[in-house]
Design a protein around this nucleic acid. Structure first.
Lengths: 159, 159
DNA sequence: AACGAACAGTTCCGAAATGAACAGTTTAAT
DNA sequence: ATTAAACTGTTCATTTCGGAACTGTTCGTT
């Protein structure tokens, strides 16, 4: 029974460490987003597009887990601001393909370089970790993320 | 220059791993909160009170980083539901002391034991990590959190 | 083909979260 | 002792977000 408690305390501490980091990260992100005239969903979408430059809206929905109404509206704004393009996907008139515009790419670059933004701060943080620490950290995170997604699917299947 | 890119990619990957885990965690948390009739701020407050059973509203604000208007309203609801008590702090009529009621403590216990909730899932996750992995992970997180709060204070001082 | 079911995305409306203005309290300086 | 400045928390107006209902598309079944 005491062992049970111990286990619980350990997991609770881990949970707290994740929440804490997230809260602290969020501050930076919100500021960065606001400074560049983006809502949080918009920021999320833009960052998701950053790596691949184009992706269908459906896929972005899966990746970001944003509700589709939120997604739709956020995309609207981004298109209006000329940051991304929205076009019909070839041979499938249901899905829409979203792609970064040059302006969007430029904004992303600006955000990445933004002094005091999350990206810069995280670069410093990464540098302050030893190679081994970094590897182990990433590995553990990957493991955790897999577990989480598995559990999610289990829950999904129950219903 | 190529090294610069490398560094950036590393930090970006770390950032993504944090965001990903958070998104996956959030799903569980939102469900748990909704299942127990709590808004997200209310859930956050309750979980913050869980360990210490009482804390001033000001301190909760600091810990959770919730805007004070949000905090005030969320607390209102919790008091209305009889989950926490709100009383004047001795010798200082500005601050209010929030404390868990028996009902609140009961609810927390229920949430902790909630099958398929974050807490249970995280307990499984923790068990699946080796002792060393767990230690290193927590250590790294602590390090990162410190860096983040330091940076935050730096930014604060600039303004 | 024709129909129904699943799907991608949009629209709309109610609910939740936030910022700004506010009221009351404490602290410090004159 | 008085007043101003900083603070804790509340209220209210506004904005943002998300769920439900909807439109149009695709796929599978008959």
């Amino acid at each position: 029974m005491i062992q049970q408690d111990e286990k619980f305390l350990k997991s609770a501490q881990l949970l707290r460490s994740f929440s804490g980091i997230h809260r602290n990260m969020l501050r930076f992100v919100q500021k960065t987003a606001a400074d560049h005239g983006l809502s949080m969903p918009q920021y999320t979408i833009l960052m998701t597009l950053a790596r691949t430059t184009e992706m269908t809206q459906k896929k972005i929905g899966k990746k970001t887990m944003l509700p589709k109404s939120t997604l739709s509206q956020a995309v609207d704004g981004l298109v209006r601001d000329g940051l991304i393009n929205r076009e019909q996907v070839e041979g499938n008139r249901r899905e829409t393909l979203l792609s970064l515009s040059p302006l969007g790419a430029e904004l992303i670059e600006k955000i990445h370089q933004h002094e005091g933004g999350v990206h810069q701060v995280f670069q410093e943080i990464t540098e302050s970790l030893s190679e081994e620490q970094y590897e182990k950290l990433l590995e553990a995170h990957q493991h955790i993320n897999e577990k989480l997604t598995n559990k999610q699917q289990e829950e999904r299947h129950k219903c």
